[in-house]
Amino acid sequence: MSSSYRLGDLELRSRLIIGTGKYKSFEENRLALDASGAEMITVAVRRVDLTTRSSGSLLDWIPPDRFHILPNTAGCTTAMEAITTAQLARELLDTKLVKLEVIGDPRTLFPDTTATLEAARVLVADGFTVLPYITDDPVACMRLEEIGCAAVMPLGAPIGSGLGIRNPANIRIILESVSCPVIVDAGVGTASDAAIALELGCTAVLMNSGIAGAKDPIKMAHAMKLAVEAGRAAYEAGRMPRRLHAQASSPEAGLIDLS
């Protein structure tokens, strides 16, 4: 069993944080959540549709008393939008947590670093536990930690791309540069991607499309659970050194002479 970790006031064991978008139904979402073992899920906040009043609510399926709900500011493109969205989410969900996202470009969904720093500063001062989505830029991560963010969440690859961790060297530099938890947010496409994030020493991974976009999301949720557990255990175990040449693992002494 791997160790627990802290995000703000929370102590968590599962190193998988999952999104709630793109599922076929609330039921599928709930089953995937159960299979993943995640203790924290992220949700978006949007306008209530005033014309379809009877549609069920996500929170009927995913009760906030059983999971830590991490509202996100997905879709916000300015610091002010993200700040107001976080404040609305706090009122809605009675939580200090926020996954801060300020999108700088609609095509790549890369974050606007300047606006993210600006919003993080305001939200930390307002008492939020801020978990910012950011590029895999070590300096941006250092600045976010200085501001008082509870973690930094560099992307592994663009949101929804499933390309895996494109720059593991930068993730390693980030891990050396900050002392707060590092959570890979975005880019995980399959189980090995999640395992790599944990093997590098990341505290956790956050994913949505990697599970919801699989042919069988519930089975993939289970695969991701195993992957983060395996990756973390391998990190804690400490991998063997890499060698260019072979080194036999059977003794060289006592070989049988059959000549």
Partner: peptide, 11 residues
């Protein structure tokens, strides 16, 4: 006036 609720979403 904006009236909002929680919906499925990841990023």
């Amino acid at each position: 006036v904006e009236v909002i609720h929680a919906v499925g979403g990841g990023a």
